[in-house]
Computed example of a mutant assay.
Amino acid sequence: MDKSVIKFSHCNKDIYCFFVPEECPECGVSFSGRRLEDAPISIPNPFTNGHKVPCSFLVAPTEGTLLGDFDGGSDLHTGITNTKGVVYNYTKTGVRKDNIGWEKCISVPLVQPDMYNLLNQWDQYLEKFSSAEMWDPLCQKFDEEKHNCYNYTLAFINCVLAAQGKRSLSKEEFTQSFVVPRIKRASKYRMLCEEISQNYFYIVDSPLKEQDDANSE
């Protein structure tokens, strides 16, 4: 996952790899002295170091590495970063404050850089919210269905929205709008990395090729 996935097009194929080869893996034509149909582009890595993205919502698997275990079937854990990258997350033992352990995860930025008032109060909001009785394991037990890490993070987000005079988001709204699209990108990127690691390349018909085939039918 530390390698960059590169995409380039040749002979009506989109070719994904970690480096541009000297010849086309599909047709064998040498690239020496030739121009590719399109300049190679780098596919953005959807995984990030959560401790370097302040004021963000984070998603990571409960165990293992994100690339190896983020397969759509793994249990996921969520957290919120403060302005210094400390990850506040709710567990069976209450709210934890992690300085390490979230180096490879998916993030959703929650604050724009120009929202100075919110940035100045973010850590105070997060600390006060996390100290509430409902997150104290002695007062309210962790429940995997109804009182869990996702409820904690979403409740905090809605508290911030309320402080700004904005409407709250339902679990379905937030999940479908902000979480699912990023998980899909992460799953696709994971698949690309696996295919390239095993076969050196991942090759598919380019959209233009598919469109030409459809028009000819």
Rank of each mutant, 00 (worst) to 15 (best):
K84M: 09
G85F: 06
V86L: 11
Y88K: 01
Y90T: 05
T91I: 08
T91A: 10
T93D: 11
G94T: 09
V95C: 05
K97S: 06
K97P: 00
D98M: 11
N99D: 04
I100H: 08
I100Q: 05
E103I: 10
E103R: 12
E103Q: 13
K104S: 13
K104V: 13
C105A: 06
I106N: 02
I106F: 00
S107D: 05
S107A: 13
V108P: 08
P109K: 07
Q112G: 02
Q112E: 03
D114W: 13
Y116T: 10
Y116W: 12
Y116N: 08
N117W: 10
N117D: 06
L118S: 00
L119T: 07
L119Q: 06
L119M: 14
N120G: 08
Q121R: 13
Q121M: 14
D123F: 09
D123E: 06
Q124R: 12
Y125S: 09
L126A: 05
L126N: 12
E127I: 03
F129G: 04
S130I: 03
A132W: 02
D136V: 02
P137N: 04
P137F: 02
L138E: 14
L138P: 00
L138V: 04
Q140G: 07
Q140P: 00
Q140Y: 15
K141M: 05
H147F: 10
H147K: 10
N148A: 04
C149I: 03
Y150S: 10
N151W: 07
N151C: 07
A155P: 01
F156N: 04
N158L: 07
L161N: 10
A162N: 12
A162M: 13
Q164C: 05
Q164P: 06
Q164A: 03
G165V: 06
R167T: 14
R167P: 04
R167H: 14
S168I: 09
S168A: 14
L169E: 04
S170H: 12
S170G: 15
S170T: 15
K171E: 14
E172Q: 13
E173R: 14
